[in-house]
Design a protein around this nucleic acid. Structure first.
Length: 396
RNA sequence: GCUGAGUUGGCGGAGUAGUCAAUCGCAUCAGACUGUAGAUCUGACGCCCGUUCGGGCUACGGGAGUGCAAAUCUCUCACUCAGCA
């Protein structure tokens, strides 16, 4: 390996907001820099669904997040390695973060079993059989693609992530259910701690920055314990786990940030609603990743600015509704993205009604642009010490 | 004109005497979605009541029958399609 490719990504704080914990910064990798706060669009299987790298470049995307578990199953880390890593394989060439597969320990496990997501809802879904089995050693999955047995452990996850060659990687963790009791949460947290230590030991490739992951569910003492543990063993911290509510999530962020060295980059895993982003940045989070812009886009939910968009409707409209059938205006007149500049709402409504592929793409494009622009404006606001004012434009 | 096949809820299409207000698909409507088993999923979908669960009414082209009971059997009318004239 050439030396220039052996440099660990770095993080530097550029500016600290005077009234809150918000700060701007930059993560430097050999594939490029990421100005923070920033949200990674998710490209699970080495593609941000429906968007190609040229779309991403046009939008101003600085980095994407791919998934270890999915790429391990298909097409396999060895194949991707032969193409120089995920970033090169997908012709992106920019910074990439890979999740460890830890989320699939949850989404194909207790999440199915208990019918819950990572944020607890009033109504619990139906219980389904889990597709994995957890042991001290690791997790046995039944592949959702062909049913084959697959095994993932901290060592294997790190090994796969090395072959996938992302710039930022994540330790292998066990995600607790938001319904777990204190004892169950503690048990899960302890398992995660052991897995994280093993992740650190397995991590050899210095060109990759390894993030630890904090857990502890909704419990303050466990969250603090986890923050301190991660701070001790990692130079970059990802906030993970399940949350009882948005309020609890915000508390968890505060408890965690207060117990981690300020200079370390902090990533909030899997969160990306507008209010959550603003509240998290305010509490010191630097980066995010979320499927929301693309998943919402594919089902016809379009992000909109205030006053049409608000906390209640989660800043989105449902383009499939009949009311948009004859709408001549753009999707969002406060957006200057390619989609909003060039297509009528009626046309996009029609694409969705007709199940035309272009509809999914345009909606995803707009949504990714929308959040990317939000982050850009947040950075500007922080740099100009007016973050709280900026936040008020969105919330209340 | 004759012969044969058919007519079911917005559409397509099951059902062929009781457990049928009627399987299923599509469409429609409503809701969900936060490290993507997701171009997905859930629910509603004749009308009117009432709480789960029921209760009432109107319904399987129109009309008339048989029968305890009919979307299902008989007769008749209308219409559609195919073949023969």
């Amino acid at each position: 390996m050439l030396d220039i490719f052996n440099k660990t990504p770095t993080f530097e704080i550029t500016h600290k907001d005077t009234k809150t914990k918000a700060r701007t910064g930059v993560i430097k990798t050999t594939r490029g820099s990421i100005e923070t706060p920033y949200i990674f669009p998710v490209g699970t299987k080495a593609t941000v669904k429906s968007l190609d790298p040229y779309d991403l470049l046009e939008i101003g995307v600085q980095g994407v997040l791919a998934n270890t578990y999915h790429l391990f199953l298909q097409p396999g880390e060895n194949l991707i390695s032969k193409f120089g890593g995920v970033s090169e394989f997908m012709n992106w060439h920019g910074p990439v973060m890979t999740d460890s597969g830890g989320f699939q320990v949850f989404s194909l496990g207790v999440s199915l079993e208990q019918g819950v997501g990572k944020l607890l809802k009033d109504e619990v879904g139906v219980s389904k059989p889990r597709l994995n089995k957890i042991s001290e050693k690791g997790v046995t999955f039944q592949s959702h693609i062909d049913g084959a047995k697959k095994f993932l452990s901290p060592e294997i996850s790190i090994k796969i992530q090395e072959k996938l060659g992302a710039d930022l990687i994540v330790g292998f963790d066990d995600l607790e259910s938001p319904k777990y009791s204190y004892e169950e949460t503690k048990k899960s947290l302890d398992l995660t701690a052991r897995w994280l230590i093993r992740s650190v030991k397995a991590h050899k490739k210095k060109s990759q920055l390894l993030y630890g992951v904090t857990h502890g569910g909704k419990f303050k003492d466990l969250r603090i314990e986890s923050a301190k543990f991660n701070d001790k063993h990692f130079n970059a911290i990802a906030l993970g786990g399940a949350h009882e509510s948005k309020e609890n999530l915000y508390d968890v962020i505060s408890w965690t940030v207060e117990n981690v060295d300020e200079v370390k980059p902090k990533h909030l895993l899997g969160i990306g609603e507008v209010d959550d982003i603003l509240n998290a940045v305010e509490r010191g989070v630097d980066t995010f990743d979320c499927v929301i812009p693309t998943r919402m886009g594919r089902v016809g939910n379009i992000f909109v600015h205030p006053p049409i968009g608000n906390e209640k409707n989660k800043f989105r409209i449902d383009i499939t509704k009949r009311e948009f059938e004859k709408e001549k205006g753009s999707l969002n007149n406060k957006c200057d993205c390619k989609v909003c500049r060039n297509y009528t709402t009626a046309y996009i409504h029609h694409l969705f009604r007709a199940h035309e592929l272009l509809g999914y793409k345009l909606a995803s494009y707009h949504n990714v642009y929308f959040l990317n622009k939000l982050m850009e404006e947040i950075r500007d606001a922080i740099n100009e010490n007016r973050f709280l004012e900026y936040k008020k434009k969105w919330l209340r």
